[in-house]
Structures are given as C-alpha cells and as structure tokens.
C-alpha cells in the first residue's frame, strides 16, 4: 500500500485531526515504518505551515489547530517509536519557558509546538520562571537547549540573570536561545546567549543548527 503523504500533509496543515488520525492509523496498519510516517507525513506538513506562518499567510489560530492535529497523529506513533527496533532519530531535548514576571506565552507555545512538530523532545515549564526553575528543569530532563521567552522590556533583563546562572553552574554545554517581541540578535549577543529566534520556523532551524554543531 502506498500512503498519500501530500494528502496527509494537507490534513495536518488544515488542522483536520480526525483525518490525520485515520491516515496515520492506515499507514501503521499497512506496516509502513513509523519514522517515515512521522517524517514524511506529519513533520513535512507542519514545516510548510511554519513557513507560511512566518510570512503571514497563516496565523496563530491555524497553527494551534494544526499542532493539535499533528499531536493526534504523534500519539498513535509514540508507543511504536518507543519500541527498540524502530530507532527514529531523536533530535534533542529542549526546555522552554517564559521568564519571571512575564505571562506572555503564545509565542513560546508556538515555538514549542513547531519544535515538537519537527521531532524535538520539548519540556515547556510555563510562565513566570526563575533561574532556579530553568536550571532544575535543565538537569532533570538533561537538556541540550534552553529556550527563554520575554515580551516585555521590564522582564527581558532577567534573561541575563539566567544566562549567568548557567555559566556559574558550569552548564556551558547547554545552549541558550531567546526570543520575544523586544528581543533581537544584538541583545542575544549582549547577554551571551547562543542565539535568537525571530519566529517559530526560524527558531526550529536554529535549534537544528545548534544540535548539529554540538554533534560535530
């Protein structure tokens, strides 16, 4: 049996969760390798949406329902991916949160969804997070990357506190990436963060390049 990945991608893009589930189940039943279903069927659809979101062709509501559809498909694949003989490439572990004093979380959530959609293991620790919270989560989940979000000029200086804390704890092997409305790449440099993500799709590319730089 051949799976129509173009159609499955389209269902992910349109956020049609029941259709996505149906097609993923068919593919599983037909014995298609789960890694392939994930890559070609789900991740590919989500990455097109990420690009369109970046260019204001699709907007926040559409991304949210697409992420939900993608998740519905992933849920079916998860138990199979965990079994030993199917070794899907695990891309890396990200811990993400919004910094202390700040409650803006839509951007952070979209980055989380896109990164999960791209195959990363992401732990979203929520809003109003302290340096302790970030360090604890980083150790607990053995993070490769920390993502911090701040939407306010009053809360963004706290990112520096967190970066310094990671240095003080000698956790230099963990890359720190930041984002949010008032942030730019200059600010990331100023506080010694490892990168800045202007939007969800670019952030995923950034995560990927940091992981591959680390591997080599």
């Amino acid at each position: 049996m051949k799976i129509d990945y173009a159609l499955l991608n389209q269902y992910v893009y349109e956020g049609k969760a029941p259709k996505v589930k149906e097609m993923v189940q068919e593919a599983i039943d037909a014995g298609i390798p789960v890694a392939e279903i994930l890559e070609e069927g789900l991740i590919a659809g989500m990455s097109v949406l990420g690009e369109d979101f970046k260019h204001n062709i699709r907007y926040v509501p559409e991304v949210l329902i697409a992420a939900r559809a993608m998740k519905a498909g992933q849920e079916l694949l998860k138990p199979l991916l965990a079994t030993a003989d199917v070794k899907a490439k695990k891309k890396g572990v990200i811990v993400i949160g919004t910094v202390k004093g700040d409650l803006h979380d839509i951007g952070k959530n979209l980055v989380t969804m896109m990164a999960e959609g791209a195959g990363f293991e992401v732990y979203d620790i929520g809003i109003d997070k302290s340096d302790n919270d970030f360090v604890e989560a980083a150790l607990k989940y053995n993070a490769d990357i920390i993502g911090m979000s701040a939407l306010l000029t009053t809360t963004m200086p706290y990112m520096k506190t967190v970066v310094e804390r990671f240095k003080a704890e000698k956790l230099d092997h963990i890359k720190i990436v930041i984002g949010g409305a008032p942030i730019n790449s200059q600010y990331a440099k100023d506080i010694n963060a490892d990168g800045f993500g202007p939007d969800a799709a670019s952030s995923v590319s950034l995560f990927e390049s940091l992981i591959s730089a680390k591997a080599s």
Binding site: Y59, G107, A181, P198, D199
Partner: peptide, 12 residues
Amino acid sequence: GTQRGMMVSPDM
C-alpha cells in the same frame, strides 16, 4: 496585532 503582523487572519 503582534510584533510581526496580525494575530488572526484578515479574513477571519
């Protein structure tokens, strides 16, 4: 609005 454009589509 958001920093980079509309939050919902102009159509919606």
